[in-house]
Structure formats: structure tokens, C-alpha cells
């Protein structure tokens, strides 16, 4: 189980400070599959990386089996790395193109002290399980010889060889063509059946809804709503979630998508609700007071002054 408490991440670029994540809480139970959605730049990747201590937050902590992941060292850290893995958004950037596929996948095993014989077996079976068959052919190839879809599978194989208990998957399919996306998502469903928990990050809720149990919605660094997939898809509460879901294109001729947010150039108020400028239901209270996370129905939380 991984639990993030009040994580805030700040980036400095030049003399500008970007609050990529603000006081975000997220809990991933054993065997749970969680979705994280939100617009581009809302802090999804940053939050996902801080869960794995790959980004250092300004405040807050992440607990892994009761230990703060930013403090662990040595053997503990190695174990933490083995049990918790990440798959990156862009396989072209996350794989060192100088290495053969075999070496790409074996890196984690080598670091974690697996012997050469053990490695071969594990790597071949992982390549098979992500659909790169025959494994002998792929393991000798260089990343440049593979397509984006194949490379993304390699990235997945690299993570699953360590048999992790938790995987952060950052937009695992957004680079891929529609016709092969589901093939990758299937791998995640299979892993879930084996008890691996996951955080799947995507700006595409319709894809998420097919595979995850719970969905968290982020907006400008804040988690604004979370609940079960059913709650979020069928009864979105936060105005942003509502807009997000109604904007999803529906594959049916003449279907009209509704646009529920206001277009504006107004700045985000410093103390109030981050959605204030674009919110169609905004009230005066929203300008000065940041809404608190409240449980509206069992398991369904939202931070909005409307509730």
C-alpha cells in the first residue's frame, strides 16, 4: 500500500515558481487499480513520480508500508525500487537507444542482483507476456529498430520483470495507435488479476474507465475529485470533471458534445478555487476560499463549494 499525504511539489524555472502539485492526497490499496486524469500540465506525472520518490516534494510524505519513501536508504531503498515500478509516457525517451533490448530489460535485474541464468529465463518470459514473440528475435534488436508500440511493450517488460507490487503507468498508451492500444491495456488488466496494484495516468478518461477501479481528477496541481469509476463517470460532481466527461468525443455521427467551461483569460485567484475563472457555477465564496475535500457519498470525494 502506498499513501501520499499532502504532497506539494514546486519547480523553479528561472525565477518563476511552478506549483506543479498542491497538497495532494492519494491512497493506493493492495491490488487496486487507480486512474489519474486531468488536463495537460495539471501535475499528473509529477504526482506519480513523487509516489516513487523520483521527484522531491516541498512538503508532505509518501508512506510505503509505513516508511516515508523520501527517507529510506540502502537495502530498504533497493527493495522499494524493486517493488514499485514506473512506465514512462514516452518510450523513445525512457529507453537508452544505445542498449540492446535484452540489456534494457536486464538492467533492473542486474541491479537487483539476479544471476545471469535467472535473468535469461525471466526476460524471455516477460517478452512473451507483452506480446514480443519470439523473444530471441527481439532481445537482440536495438530500440531504433522497433516501432513505438513495440518499444512501449519493452518499457513495460522492463518494469514487470522485477515482479513489482505497484506500477505507475504514465500515459502508457497515448503514444500508440488506437488499433493496438487495447493490447497494451490488456497487459495491465492481466497484471491486476495477479494482484499488482497500479496508478494509470491518462488525460483520456474513456480509456481509463475501461481498466481502473477508482479515478482521481486533477486540476492545476490540485486533486479536485475522486471516487469509484462508476461514481466519476456517471455522477461527476466537480464542474471540471463534468466538463471533462462531457467533452469526450462520442463515436456516433451527429453527436453534439457539450462545452461546460467558460473560456476566459482571467487569472486564477491566489486563495480561492483554482477553477474559479472558468467555472460556470462560481459563487463569491469560491474567489477567496479554497474548497475542502468532502465526502459527498461513500467513497466519493470532491473539493467544491457546491457540495
Amino acid at each position: 500500500m502506498i499513501e501520499a499525504e499532502k504532497i506539494s511539489v514546486e519547480f523553479k524555472s528561472g525565477d518563476r515558481k511552478i506549483n506543479a502539485v498542491k497538497e495532494a492526497n492519494i491512497t493506493i490499496g493492495d491490488g487496486e487499480s487507480i486512474g489519474l486524469a486531468g488536463e495537460s500540465g495539471s501535475g499528473k506525472t509529477t504526482l506519480g513520480k513523487s509516489l516513487l520518490a523520483l521527484v522531491k516534494p516541498k512538503e508532505g510524505k509518501v508512506l510505503w508500508n509505513g516508511k516515508n519513501v523520501f527517507k529510506i536508504k540502502g537495502k530498504d531503498l533497493k527493495n522499494f525500487r524493486r517493488e514499485n515500478q514506473i512506465i514512462y509516457q514516452d518510450p523513445f525517451d525512457s529507453i537508452d537507444i544505445r542498449m540492446r533490448i535484452y540489456d534494457v530489460i536486464s538492467e533492473g535485474l542486474t541491479v537487483q542482483g539476479f544471476s545471469k541464468q535467472e535473468q535469461r529465463e525471466i526476460i524471455y518470459s516477460a517478452l512473451k507476456s507483452v506480446g514480443l514473440n519470439p523473444p530471441e528475435a527481439y532481445s537482440n534488436a536495438f530500440p531504433t529498430q522497433l516501432s513505438g508500440g513495440q518499444l512501449q511493450r519493452v518499457a513495460i517488460a522492463r518494469s514487470i520483470v522485477l515482479n513489482p507490487k505497484f506500477i505507475v503507468a504514465d500515459e502508457p498508451v497515448s503514444m500508440l495507435d488506437v488499433s493496438i492500444r487495447s493490447g497494451i491495456l490488456q497487459i495491465f488488466q492481466d497484471m491486476k488479476e495477479k494482484g499488482t496494484s497500479s496508478l494509470i495516468i491518462s488525460h483520456d478518461i474513456s480509456t481509463l474507465a475501461y481498466v481502473v477501479d477508482k479515478i482521481y481528477i486533477m486540476y492545476l496541481g490540485h486533486v479536485v475529485e475522486y471516487g469509484t469509476t462508476q461514481q466519476i463517470i456517471e455522477k461527476p460532481l466537480h464542474p471540471y470533471t463534468q466538463a471533462l466527461i462531457s467533452a469526450i468525443p462520442i463515436p456516433e455521427p451527429n453527436h453534439e458534445t457539450e462545452i461546460k467551461l467558460v473560456e476566459t483569460n482571467e487569472p486564477v485567484p491566489p486563495k480561492g478555487c483554482p477553477l474559479y475563472p472558468r467555472c460556470p457555477f462560481r459563487k463569491n465564496v469560491c474567489l477567496d476560499n479554497e474548497p475542502k475535500m468532502t465526502e459527498v457519498e461513500p467513497g466519493h470525494y470532491v473539493s467544491c463549494h457546491l457540495y
Binding site: G149, R181, V211, Q230, I248
Partner: peptide, 23 residues
Amino acid sequence: FLKAIPDIRKWKERKLYYIPGEL
């Protein structure tokens, strides 16, 4: 191709379709 497109209205079916093979 049409079948592989996720349709938010059908999320409950949780049935993922894809075209095996590569381009």
C-alpha cells in the same frame, strides 16, 4: 478500428478490442 475506439458510454462492458499485429 471502430470497435477499438473506447466509448465512454460502454465502459462497464470493460471489453477491450484491438487489432493484433503491427502496421
